[in-house]
Design a protein around this nucleic acid. Structure first.
Lengths: 236, 236
DNA sequence: GGAATGCTTCGCCCGAGAACGAAGCGTTCG
DNA sequence: CGAACGCTTCGTTCTCGGGCGAAGCATTCC
C-alpha cells in the first residue's frame, strides 16, 4: 500500500519525542540553530544532528548555513498545517489527562500567535466577545461578519469590507484552539485583528516563543474596545 | 514539553506501517472488522488486535460490537482531517520518489471521494472545467462562484444560491489533491457536485474503497455538462 | 596561529515494541 | 451439542533505531 507507507514514514518521523519537540519549537516559523534545537529536544548534539538530518531529508525542514551556525525552519506552511492538525487532535480528541504546567506553558495558554492570528485564552475571548455582541456569527466551518460587525470594526480602523471580497483567502473561519478547546478567529479577519493589536502595542512577542505578552495598554484597550476583562488573569 | 509529548505520542501511533494501513483503510468513514483490518495491515490477527487496542485507547478509533464481529471506524472528523493533513504532506511535500502503482491505486487516482466531495483526476478536472468556463474563481484558500456559475449550476438543478449563504460551512474552497498535486473543489459546492454525480449514477462507489467508478452514463454526462473528456482515461 | 565554538560522523550499547503461534474465551451456525 | 469462527491474551523472539561519547571537520574569535 503506497498510501499507507508514506503516511507511516512521515508519522514515524514526527513520532519520536526528540523530533516532535524540535518540530513543535519551530511551529511559529522562526529559524533556530542546531544547538538551540538540541536543547529543546532534550538530547545531545550528536543525536540532534542525526534527527535534523532525517527531518531535512524528508523535506520537513529547510536549512540555511550562516557562518558556523546552521539555521533550521519548517519547510513550508504545509508542514505547519500538518503539525497543527496532529496537535489539535492530540489536545482535543485525546483523553484529558493530567499535564504538568510550566511557566512558558502558562504564557502560551494565555495568549499566543497561531500563524498570523491570535490564539490561547485571549484569542478565544476575542472570538467570544465578537460573537456575544452580534458582530460575528460562527459556524463549524466558517463564519460571517454581520452589519454591526462591519460597522464596529470599521470604527477601529480595520476596513473589514475591503478584506471581505478577496477570494484569495477565507475571510472568517473558526480555528480550534488546542489549549482552550474552543474556537478562535482565523482567516483574513483574524489576521487583521492580530495586526491591529500588535500595531497598538496591546500585545508583544515574547522572545523565542509564539507566546505573546499583553501590555498594560493592551489590558485597557482590549477592555474598552471589546469588553475583555483580564483582571483575573495572571500578569506573568 | 507537554505539547511535544502529545505530538510525539499520536504521531508514533500513526507511524507504524501496520497501523497506518489500518487508518488509511478507514479514511472514507466506513467501519471495518478486525479481520478485514488485519488483511489490509498485512499482519496476523493477534498483532492486529494489539494495534487496534492501542488506536482505540488513544481515541483514534471507535468500536462497536456486532455479534462476533467488532467493527472499527475513525473516531471523529478530527481524525480524518489529521490524517488527510499528513497524507497531503507525504504526497506533496515529500520528494517525488518512485512509487509502484497497484490496480486499486490506479482507480484511486482516477476518481475517489474525499469526505463528501470528489477527488483524484476527476475531481481536479471538474474544478478545472468550472474555472476555465468562468463559473468559479479559485484562490489559495477560498473560492467564489460567479454569476455565470450560479446560472450554470442552477440549470443542473443544484440551487447553489441557497447553499451560499449558510455560514455553517465554507461554501467553496480548494482542497489540495494528493495524487494530482493540484486543487479540487471542497466545501458545500464540492459536496453538492459529488451528490449530483452519484444521484445521476454518473459515478458509483467501488466496494471496499474510497475509489469511485465512472459509469458509461457518467462519461457522457460529464462531457455534456462540463466538457470533461474521459476518452483517454482507463476504463478499469 | 592557536583556541574555542558549532556541528557531524562513527562505533557501541541497549531498550522498546512489533511480530508470531499457541491457547483461551465468547458467539454463531449446523 | 459440537464445530467453526472471530477475536484477544500470553510468552517469546528479534530487529530497529535512539542514545551517548570520542573523534573529526569546519568556521570564527582572539
Amino acid at each position: 500500500m503506497t498510501v499507507g507507507t508514506n503516511l507511516a514514514e512521515v508519522s514515524a518521523l514526527i513520532g519520536d519525542p526528540a523530533r516532535a519537540n524540535i518540530l513543535a519549537a519551530l511551529m511559529d516559523g522562526r529559524a533556530l540553530t542546531a544547538s538551540e534545537l538540541a536543547y529543546v529536544a532534550g538530547v545531545g548534539a550528536s543525536t540532534t544532528s542525526v534527527h535534523l538530518a532525517k527531518l531535512h531529508d524528508a523535506n520537513l525542514l529547510t536549512v540555511v548555513k550562516q557562518g558556523r551556525h546552521r539555521y533550521f525552519r519548517l519547510a513550508s506552511p504545509l508542514v505547519s498545517r500538518m503539525l497543527e492538525g496532529i496537535m489539535t487532535f492530540a489536545a482535543i480528541g485525546s483523553p484529558p489527562r493530567y499535564q504538568p504546567r510550566t511557566t512558558n506553558d502558562t504564557a502560551m495558554r494565555l495568549a499566543r500567535t497561531c500563524y498570523d492570528h491570535l490564539a490561547g485564552w485571549l484569542g478565544v475571548a476575542l472570538a467570544d466577545a465578537l460573537v456575544a455582541r452580534g458582530h460575528i456569527v460562527l459556524g463549524d466551518d466558517a463564519g460571517e461578519l454581520t452589519a454591526s460587525g462591519i460597522d464596529a470594526l470599521g470604527k477601529l480602523g480595520l476596513a473589514p469590507a475591503a478584506l471581505q471580497h478577496s477570494h484569495k483567502r477565507v475571510f472568517c473561519r473558526p480555528c480550534l484552539d488546542w489549549s482552550e478547546r474552543r474556537p478562535h478567529l482565523a482567516g483574513a479577519i483574524g489576521a487583521a485583528l492580530a495586526t491591529h493589536c500588535f500595531e497598538r502595542h496591546w500585545i508583544e512577542h515574547i522572545r523565542d516563543s509564539r507566546a505573546v505578552k499583553i501590555t498594560t495598554a493592551g489590558r485597557a484597550g482590549l477592555r474598552s474596545s471589546f469588553g475583555i476583562d483580564l483582571s483575573d488573569r495572571p500578569t506573568l
